[in-house]
C-alpha cells in the first residue's frame, strides 16, 4: 500500500516579478525517506523549498504539510507546523550576535519547557554529533563555512523535528566532512524516523543517501523516482546529469 505523503504540493506557481520560477509544480514527499531535489542552477530548487515553507508566497497552488493546507493558514497555526520542521539554510543563517551554544538553544528555550540542565545536555550532544563540541562558546564569525553549516544542522535538529530540510548541505565542504554529514543524515532518518528533504547537486552525496529523487528543469518537475530509476531513465536532462557527473 502506498504511504500517505507528509508533504503534498499541487499545481504550485511561483514568480519573481513577471518571471515564472515554478510552473504548476506537483510533488509528494513521503515520510521516513530522504528525498533529494536536484536540477541545474537557477531551476527553482531553493524557490520550491521556500514556497513550501511560506518564506515566499506562491502565486497559486496548494501545499499540505502533515495533512494540513498551509496556504492561507493563520500564522499562529503555521508556527505549530514549523515547530515540527528543521531547516538548514545554504549559508547556515546563524545569528551572528549569539554564540553557537545560544544559537542552538533558541528553539529549545522558546518551544519547550525543558530545564537549563537538560537543554545544555541536548546542545552538547547535538554539537558532538556534528563534531563541534569545542565550539560552543565561539561566535559564528569565528567559524569556517563548513563549521557554520554543521552548527546550523545542529540547530535544525535541536528539537528532533519530524521533517528536516537541508538546502545544499554539502556545498563548500571537503569530501570527508560531507560524507560524515551524510552519515549523520542517514542516522537521523533511521533513529528519529525523520523525513529529510535535501537540495543538492553533489552526486556522491546523492548516491550515499537518496531514497527518492525529484528532478527540476525549466521550472517544472521532469522526473520523480528512485536513484536506480533515475540512472536508467531516458529523459535527456536526467540522463546527461548522471552521465556528465560520473567519475568512475
Amino acid at each position: 500500500m502506498m504511504k500517505e505523503p507528509i508533504i503534498s504540493v499541487r499545481d504550485l506557481v511561483a514568480k519573481y516579478g513577471d518571471k515564472t520560477v515554478l510552473d504548476r509544480v506537483s510533488v509528494d514527499i513521503f515520510p521516513h525517506e530522504i528525498t533529494v531535489i536536484l536540477g541545474g542552477s537557477g531551476c527553482g530548487k531553493t524557490t520550491l523549498i521556500k514556497n513550501i515553507l511560506k518564506l515566499y508566497n506562491p502565486v497559486s497552488g496548494s501545499v499540505k504539510i502533515l495533512g494540513k493546507e498551509i496556504i492561507g493558514m493563520e500564522d499562529d497555526e503555521f508556527d505549530q507546523t514549523l515547530k515540527q520542521i528543521g531547516m538548514l539554510f545554504q549559508n547556515g543563517a546563524l545569528l551572528n550576535s549569539m554564540t553557537i551554544f545560544e544559537n542552538i538553544s533558541i528553539p529549545l528555550e522558546q518551544h519547550t519547557s525543558l530545564t537549563p540542565d537538560i537543554i545544555e545536555r541536548i546542545i552538547r550532544v547535538k554539537l558532538s554529533l556534528v563534531n563541534l563540541e569545542s565550539a560552543a562558546d565561539l561566535t559564528p564569525s569565528e567559524l569556517s563555512g563548513g563549521m557554520k553549516k554543521r552548527v546550523a544542522l545542529a540547530r535544525a535538529i535541536a528539537l528532533d523535528p519530524e521533517i528536516l530540510i537541508c538546502d545544499e548541505p554539502s556545498a563548500g565542504l571537503d569530501p570527508l566532512t560531507s560524507a560524515s554529514l551524510d552519515e549523520l543524515i542517514l542516522k537521523l532518518k533511521e533513529l528519529l524516523k525523520m523525513t529529510i528533504i535535501i537540495v543538492t547537486h553533489e552526486l556522491a552525496s546523492i548516491h550515499r543517501i537518496a531514497d527518492r529523487l525529484i528532478f527540476l528543469h525549466d521550472n517544472k518537475i521532469i522526473f520523480t523516482g528512485t536513484l536506480a530509476e533515475a540512472k536508467s531513465t531516458d529523459i535527456p536532462e536526467v540522463e546527461s546529469f548522471f552521465r556528465v557527473g560520473r567519475f568512475e
Binding site: 545536555r121 546542545i123 552538547r124 563540541e133
Partner: peptide, 21 residues
Amino acid sequence: TEVKRTIKIFSSVGLQPVPVI
C-alpha cells in the same frame, strides 16, 4: 533495540561540559 541505539547516539555521558570562559 531501537531505544538502546538512540541512547547510544544521543548520550551526553563522557562529553566535555561546555567550558566557562
